[in-house]
């Protein structure tokens, strides 16, 4: 039997009727039209469907929509703010971290969660952090470069914010 749930998706509260068997990724793509979140495997392996649920990188093919009632979900569509790309998005573009782009939304979301906890990671830590995301094109090298570069951008912008505060 369908039941009503309310989920905050990319900052906006959405109330929808869902069947218990509906996966979060199906709610996002089919009901809300947010097709940036991809389904690569539907067997919890590839990470293409990764979104943030209450701030934590989660495979949206392995969580029911009803389990997110009351939760905050961020998809790749929610990363840019006021028309400005997220540093992770800018870094993926400038470091050529994608070829076909299928894995990219999931990898960027994983990176956002990871960098929130580790502001200056080593390459080994970056590789460890993206273990749950498969990319069949790039060989991962440029993805690691992009995440390292995003970390540097985010640290710089945090520092310049502090500097601006101090000036004031």
């Amino acid at each position: 039997m369908a039941q009503a749930i309310t989920v905050t998706v990319n900052g906006t509260k959405r109330t929808k009727d869902v069947e218990p068997s509906q996966l979060l990724v199906e709610l996002l793509r089919d009901t809300l039209g947010l097709t940036g979140t991809h389904v690569g495997c539907d067997t919890s392996q590839c990470g293409a469907c990764t979104v943030l649920v209450d701030g934590r990188a989660t495979k949206s093919c392995t969580i029911l929509a009803v389990q997110t009632d009351g939760a905050e979900v961020v998809t790749v569509e929610g990363l840019a703010k006021n028309g400005e790309l997220h540093p992770v998005q800018r870094a993926f573009a400038s470091e050529h971290a994608l070829q076909c782009g299928f894995c990219t939304p999931g990898l960027m979301i994983t990176a956002v969660d990871f960098l929130a906890r580790n502001a200056s990671p080593s390459d080994a830590e970056i590789r460890h952090a993206i273990e749950g995301n498969l990319c069949r094109c790039t060989g991962y090298h440029n993805i690691v470069n992009a995440i390292r570069s995003a970390a540097a951008m985010m640290t710089m912008s945090a520092q310049s914010k502090v500097a601006a505060e101090v000036k004031r």
């Binding site: 919890s44 934590r56 990188a57 989660t58 495979k59 392995t62 969660d113 952090a129 273990e131 749950g132």
Partner: peptide, 9 residues
Amino acid sequence: VGDPQVRSR
């Protein structure tokens, strides 16, 4: 266990 996403849930 598994990978970061699996450990999240």
